Simulated assay, not measured.
Amino acid sequence: MDKSWISSSRLSNAYYEGVNTFLEFARSNNPILDVIPCPCVNCINLCHRSIDNARYHLSAHIFDGNYKIWSFHGEKQPKIDFRCPNNSIPPDAIYTKDMLHNAFKYVEKEYDLLKSLLEECDKPLYVGSKYNALSGLLKFQHLKGQFGWSNAIFDALLCVLKDILPSNNTIPSSIYESKKLLNGVGLQYEKIHACENDCVLFWKEHKDASQCPTCGTSHWKKNTKNVPSKVLWYRRMLSIPQIAHDLTWHAKGRVNNGKLTHPRDNPSWKLVDNTWKEFGQEKQNLRLALSADGINPHKSLSSKRSCWSVILITYNLPPYLCMSRKFMMLTLLISGPNQPGNNIDVYLAPLIENLKLLWETGVETFDS
């Protein structure tokens, strides 16, 4: 299909014909949906509009010039010939952009940040490289975490790479510059202060307390100002509408052969269905397992500090997905000089509040 008219800035008759061709294509691929992602330069497929509103936007603002493959409207990505990368779309150009669009799909106030990241996706790391500026940096950042490089080592590496790569390279020259670029890619988290003896969180009514209301221990480290004695890292749970189909696998996709092959066959699951019948009848309601354990994030067995992770696992999914890394949600990270022990329930309070919100009120999300 010829899309040369997309990049044209002249709103000619050919452009309007092209807009109508696009809208018919989008409608035919999603006949049951009332809205489609709008590909104008302002919405860049983040905002969902009706067909008429999308037509108005495309007339008033024209197409996003980089949207040449209609992957958000049903068109298949071209097959990539890895033997001849110059004659095909580099895989990172596709996957990094898809990742960014997924991350920002329902964000209403971060369009400028997303646009700047997408611009980095259009800059090659250097002329002839299969990586772009963003995907190349993500590759280096992954190696940093995998091998436990310190910030000083990573900073020195970036300086050397900046120097030895071709002069037109776009790699950041320091770790400070790399953090500025990657700031928009990372998942947001909340830091909540805690009592050194694991009595309470300095949260909600205790947020401004200078000492623990239970044991009297100071909120702050000794001989410091505004440095908390212990911190809980909390990440809010995210909705992932792309896996809506897989979330009903436990009810529609599995073979019921009378054997225990999935948590769905467990008596505890059936007890929930019988006790809360309305909940059990909705196949997309999430069944979550909670797991907590101490870890050594830097592979050091002699560490003097404790680090505990609290992970949620979605049991709605098929077995090969529900235990895969991408569907394990790291919701809490408890770090401090001592392990929480039996007082771990104190740290679970923000997560429990979030789960109660899902149970009692619900959270609106997009049904893909």
Score class of each variant (00 low, 15 high):
Ala26Gly: 00
Ile171Phe: 15
Arg305Val: 13
Ile94Ser: 04
Ala251Ile: 00
Lys180Asp: 12
Pro91Gln: 07
Trp149Asn: 10
Asn343Cys: 10
Trp308Leu: 03
Ile164Gly: 05
Arg235Tyr: 10
Lys79Asn: 15
Ser218Leu: 01
Asn183His: 09
Leu158Val: 00
Ala292Gly: 09
Asn45Met: 06
Ser88Glu: 01
Asn197His: 04
Asn53Phe: 14
Phe140Val: 00
Ser50Ala: 02
Ser4Leu: 04
His193Phe: 05
Leu58Asp: 06
Val231Lys: 02
Ala349Ile: 13
Cys215Met: 04
Cys212Asp: 09
Ile352Phe: 08
Pro213Glu: 05
Asp81Ala: 12
Glu177Phe: 02
Gln281Lys: 14
Cys212Thr: 04
Asp34Val: 03
His57Tyr: 00
Ser291Trp: 06
Ser178His: 07
Gly341Gln: 01
Leu113Thr: 06
Ile171Asn: 07
Leu33Ile: 12
Leu117Tyr: 01
Asn13Met: 13
Asn338Ser: 08
Val227Pro: 12
Asn45Ile: 04
Ser324Thr: 14
Glu24Trp: 09
Lys356Ile: 13
Phe63Cys: 01
Cys43Ser: 12
Phe72Val: 05
Lys139Pro: 11
Ser173Gln: 12
Lys180Tyr: 09
Gly341Arg: 04
Leu355Tyr: 08
Ile334His: 01
Pro37Asp: 00
Glu364Lys: 15
Asn183Arg: 09
Phe147Cys: 08
Tyr56Ala: 12
Tyr176Trp: 12
Asn42Asp: 15
Pro213Arg: 09
Lys79Leu: 15
Asn102Met: 04
Ala292Asn: 05
Asp122His: 07
Thr314Trp: 12
Asp246Ser: 02
Leu321Trp: 02
Tyr320His: 12
Pro337Val: 14
Val127Cys: 11
Lys230Gly: 02
Asp64Val: 08
Asn342Ser: 10
Leu351Trp: 05
Tyr106Lys: 00
Cys307Ser: 01
Leu332Thr: 08
Phe82Tyr: 12
Met99Cys: 14
Arg55Asp: 10
His142Phe: 10
Ser88Leu: 06
His219Trp: 11
Ile311Trp: 02
Pro37Asn: 04
Ile192Gly: 02
Ala133Trp: 14
Leu333Pro: 00
Asp64Ser: 01
Pro263Asn: 01
His262Lys: 10
Ala54Asp: 07
Trp5Asn: 06
Leu161Ser: 08
Phe366Ala: 03
Met329Gln: 03
Asp163Leu: 11
Leu125Phe: 07
Leu46Val: 03
Pro124Gly: 09
Val272Ala: 03
His298Cys: 03
Tyr111Asn: 10
Asn316Val: 03
Gln146Glu: 12
Ser129Ile: 13
Lys79Trp: 14
Ala103Met: 04
Arg254Gln: 00
Gln146Arg: 14
Ser8Asp: 04
Leu118Ile: 09
Asp81Tyr: 05
Tyr15His: 04
Ala103Glu: 05
Asn66Arg: 10
Leu118Cys: 01
Ser167Trp: 06
Tyr106Asn: 02
Pro91Val: 13
